[in-house]
Nucleic acid binder design. Structure first.
Length: 897
RNA sequence: GGGGAGUUAGCUCAGUUGGUUAGAGCACCAGCUUGACAUGCUGGGGGUCAUGGGUUCGAGUCCCGUACUUCCCACCA
């Protein structure tokens, strides 16, 4: 009969309830009066256009774990949330949206465009943060910062102005990556090289001075022929060098162009001759510069060909123009061959279309503080977890190129540079560069470009804390909370973001060395999460449809379950193969935790542990579980210190399930039944464990812990505010409260091992469910230990009595740390033959181990060179094996009769 | 082309400075409605630690080579 109705934990209902309580209770607020030590994390601001994905869940779970743990450890914890205006990404989305309504932004003024974009941002911008609430994030929403907030804009512009003044920012006409779809320049990091299948065309140009002779050239881009201004060959190329100085006829538009010699041309590629289109290829551009060649730009901003390409190609897209020019070459008899050719093409990360190298006027940043940025990481001032990302970081900084920071968009921080109205824009001395603009704006025109989104993000940790405004820095407690403790992000933005934040902080917050640097760096550690992939290892993406909906998962498994599951599958240093089964395990863990607490409560209110009184003397299984608990605390401290969340979660789950529930609680039931007077003491120990467990688990599964903390009555107020004892602290506390036998747990371990061995024996001979069978022994067991634990053994294993007999012959026998025991088999092994075989195998294994160990110990080198404890270990193992073997031989001898 | 990471049970991964007989979870098989929990319990099978050398008394662990996987960077028209 069941005493109680089945009951289950109403997970999502409780989660919603507690999140509301926390927010209303101000749990997440940055402490008003900072005290002690500050611990802050700046959340990587999600894009306002973003959709919550699995990466956000993992990333924010980790940050939440860290910030909650810091709170428990009594630190002033502040988690700064925010959103990123998302530059191109938002502008593209707004324009698509407007197009549906028949509105085209090219017909609108900049102000009107901005208004639409702001509306869009305001409508969708907070969705993702709101979604994150379901996960239980404890960031201080009242301090939320958006990258286009007025205050943050001042940060960004001040950064620009100062970098300009210091000579790091300049304007120049350079070859940049042009996205013809978004019609803006993009940075090198936003270009993804992709292998694309195309054709390599072998074509020939007639040599003007030598009628009937041709120079052959290979190209993948025949549509750029109108932009050709020369053909280059290697000056020492015997096939071609006599042609240098002569000319070829460009077929369309018809023109004679020179043949030049340049050693950048690869002799062994294609025909060894390279057509030079300086406006549309970086290598060609460089060659063109060297030879003072004209730059013939035949493309419009949208990627179509312009009038310079000639009337036949003008207006065509790049793709159409390629087809057309191939046809034209064919017609002219100049196309010799086309072969399939796979080569890598630069693709715009945003539009997915090939970028176009384009010469244009742009703003560039020469990175400041490159060497010191390397140094702070190399010297461990900023620690990377996992460490190997250091190499990627350092390598990138080694080959760093100037960064094109201007974008031809309206959505973003507009470049704070003004030119005299109608004046010459190239005259730098006439420019006005300031955060607030010129006092007489009517006489000036502001630069049209905006800054790359990542430029604004580079100031995130300092900007959110008020930099550079001294008053704002004061109110944000910059001194107290900066630098942030840790940055939690993906390794894919190590260049985009991590490196740039470090350089900006070093540039602006001080130039000191040594100790000073500790207050300058933007974060003391960077934890790189893995990228979440599907079970087949593919990146999760919308197009593949392999990404589960995060909110559905939270509905299904609860926020606690999702958090626990995600952490358990996220080992340090590797990508995460997503497995929904883990989330289920997470939920199951929570359910079991709830039931374990429920069991405690069902023992009666009179024992409800307001005071947590342990027994006067703690020993035996009580001491063992408490020691394991202390050890668990220590393991968690280490794991969290090293950002080993995977290991933390695994350790706590193992302790709870295996040590506490399956072993300790089951024994408690037996002890309480056998000796009701021990009830209060036993439950007291359970309370100590459960209370500590709820605290330990709070960072990982905050909701259920809060719920149980309240129902169990373990403390007043919010769980997060109760200071968490370290393993050492807990040990001291226990020693202070009771006579705590923290000594050897060997007897309990022996008991546990014996239980396991006897259960296995019973199962293997078909007695798993028989509890009324006698257990036999022939008198050689360690009675003292057995007596103390006999009733536990009886119930845990399931036997009626111990029958001492003269011989174990014909019985199924097993060696245990507490002695040799036997059962009378049921059906499958009536004469004990099966177990005898097992014993024979065991004896065999023991003999070979003994032989190996004897050999080892007789080896003089081993005894001399191995450490003493290893030698001693081998000796004691040898002895144990010999003893076990003797015992088995004795049993086998007896049982063979 | 340069660099990183990896290869341990069917799957996902642990495995501390080299030291007893290599672990966990999932999956699988068998048994169990047991007074918290079947979202559970008990038991079980399953690994030549990718491969070839080397160092060592001793190698999953350290060194060198090879193969494969994967990521990043650069890029030849």
């Amino acid at each position: 009969m069941r005493l109680h109705m089945k009951e289950n934990y109403q997970q999502r209902q409780k989660e919603r309830y507690h999140y509301g309580r926390w927010e209303n209770g101000g749990c997440f607020l940055r402490p008003l009066q900072p005290f002690g030590k500050g611990y802050s994390i700046a959340m990587p601001p999600p894009n306002v256009t973003g959709v919550l994905h699995m990466g956000h869940l993992l990333n924010n779970t980790i940050q939440d774990v860290l910030i909650r743990y810091a709170r428990q450890m009594g630190q002033c914890a502040f988690w700064q949330p925010g959103t990123d205006h998302a530059g191109i990404s938002l502008q593209v989305k707004v324009e698509k949206e407007l197009q549906k309504q028949g509105i085209f932004t090219k017909n609108l003024s900049r102000e009107e465009c901005l208004r639409h974009a702001c509306n869009y941002r305001d409508a969708y911008g907070n969705i993702i943060l709101d979604q994150l609430r379901h996960l239980g994030v404890s960031c201080d929403f009242s301090k939320k910062v958006h990258t286009l907030d007025p205050a943050y804009c001042r940060t960004v512009l001040a950064g620009f102005v100062e970098l300009f003044r210091r000579g790091y920012i300049y304007r120049g006409r350079r070859m940049v990556n042009w996205c013809p779809v978004s019609q803006t320049a993009i940075s090198d990091e936003e270009v993804i090289m992709e292998a694309r299948r195309g054709k390599l065309y072998r074509i020939r140009y007639a040599i003007a001075e030598l009628s009937g002779e041709y120079l052959e050239v290979c190209t993948t881009r025949p549509e750029t022929i109108p932009g050709d201004v020369a053909i280059a060959v290697h000056p020492s190329d015997l096939r071609h060098r006599h042609l240098i100085g002569k000319h070829v006829c460009r077929p369309f538009p018809k023109k004679e162009i020179p043949i030049i010699g340049d050693s950048d041309v690869l002799q062994d590629f294609g025909t060894g001759a390279l057509k030079i289109t300086p406006a549309h290829d970086p290598v060609d551009f460089a060659i063109g510069q060297r030879h003072s060649l004209e730059c013939l730009d035949i493309l419009n901003g949208d990627g179509t060909l312009n009038a310079l390409a000639g009337s036949e190609l003008e207006g065509l897209s790049r793709e159409d123009a390629r087809e057309k020019s191939v046809q034209m070459l064919k017609n002219l008899g100049l196309l010799l061959e086309e072969e399939d050719y796979e080569h890598s093409v630069g693709i715009s990360e945003r539009s997915g279309k090939p970028i176009e190298p384009r010469l244009s006027d742009q703003w560039f940043l020469r990175y400041p503080q490159v060497e010191r940025a390397k140094e702070v990481v190399r010297k461990g001032l900023i620690q990377f977890f996992p460490r190997h990302w250091e190499k990627t970081y350092l390598h990138w900084l080694d080959g760093i190129q100037d960064w094109c920071i201007s974008r031809q968009l309206y959505w973003g921080h507009r470049i704070p540079v003004w030119y005299p109205k109608g004046g010459d824009r190239t005259d730098v001395s006439a420019w006005h560069v300031s955060v607030d603009g010129p006092p007489d704006p009517e006489n000036w025109e502001q630069d049209e470009d905006v800054l790359d989104t990542w430029f604004s993000s580079a100031f995130w940790p300092m900007g959110t804390m008020g930099w550079p405004d001294p008053i704002a820095m004061e109110t944000h407690h910059f001194q107290f909370y900066y630098p942030t403790a840790v940055l939690v992000t993906g390794p894919d933005i190590i260049f985009f973001w991590v490196a740039r934040m470090i350089m900006m902080a070093l540039e602006f917050l001080g130039r000191g060395d040594g100790e000073d640097l500790k207050n300058v760096i933007p974060f003391r550690a960077v934890y790189f999460t893995g990228i979440i992939r599907d079970s087949k290892g593919r990146k999760m993406s919308k197009s593949l449809g392999n990404s589960p909906e995060p909110l559905d998962l939270i509905e299904k498994y609860g926020a606690d379950g999702v958090r626990f599951g995600l952490l358990s599958m996220a080992p340090i240093g590797q990508d995460v193969l997503f497995d929904e089964g883990r989330l289920k395990q997470g939920r199951n863990f929570c359910t079991k935790l709830w039931h374990a607490c429920r069991f405690r409560m069902l023992q009666g209110d009179d024992f409800l542990p307001k005071l947590l009184l342990p027994p006067q003397r703690i020993s035996g299984v009580d001491a063992a579980i408490l020691l394991a608990l202390i050890q668990l605390c220590e393991q968690l401290e280490t794991a969290l210190k090293n950002y080993e969340f995977h290991s933390a979660v695994q350790k706590v789950e193992h302790f709870f399930r295996s040590d506490y529930c399956d072993w300790f609680v089951e024994i408690c039931k037996i002890r309480m039944k056998a000796n009701p007077s021990l009830r209060a003491e036993i439950l007291g120990v359970q309370d100590i464990v459960l209370r500590q467990l709820l605290q330990l688990l709070h960072p990982f599964t905050p909701f259920i812990c809060e719920e149980l903390w309240q129902t169990m009555g373990y403390g007043e107020g919010f769980l997060q505010d109760v200071s968490l004892l370290t393993g050492d602290g807990l040990k001291k506390q226990l020693e202070g409260l009771a006579d705590f036998d923290g000594g050897t747990t060997a007897p309990v371990e022996n008991l546990r091992e014996t239980v396991g061995l006897l259960r296995a024996l019973k199962a293997s001979i078909g007695l798993a469910n028989c509890k009324d069978v006698p257990m036999y022994c022939d008198g050689n067991w360690e009675e003292a230990a057995a007596e103390e634990h006999l009733f536990i053994l009886k119930e845990m294993v399931g036997f009626s009595t111990v029958r001492v007999v003269n011989s174990l012959q014909g019985l199924s026998t097993v060696l245990t740390p507490l002695g040799t025991f036997a059962f009378e088999a049921n059906g499958s092994d009536v004469d004990g033959a099966k177990e005898r075989e097992k014993l024979l195998r065991e004896a065999e294994a023991l003999r070979s181990n003994i032989a190996a160990n004897e050999k080892k110990l007789s080896d003089v080198k081993f005894c001399q060179r191995a450490p003493a404890e290893v030698v001693a270990g081998a000796k004691s193992l040898l002895m144990k094996n010999q003893k076990d073997l003797e015992e088995i031989e004795r049993i086998l001898h007896i049982s063979q009769g």
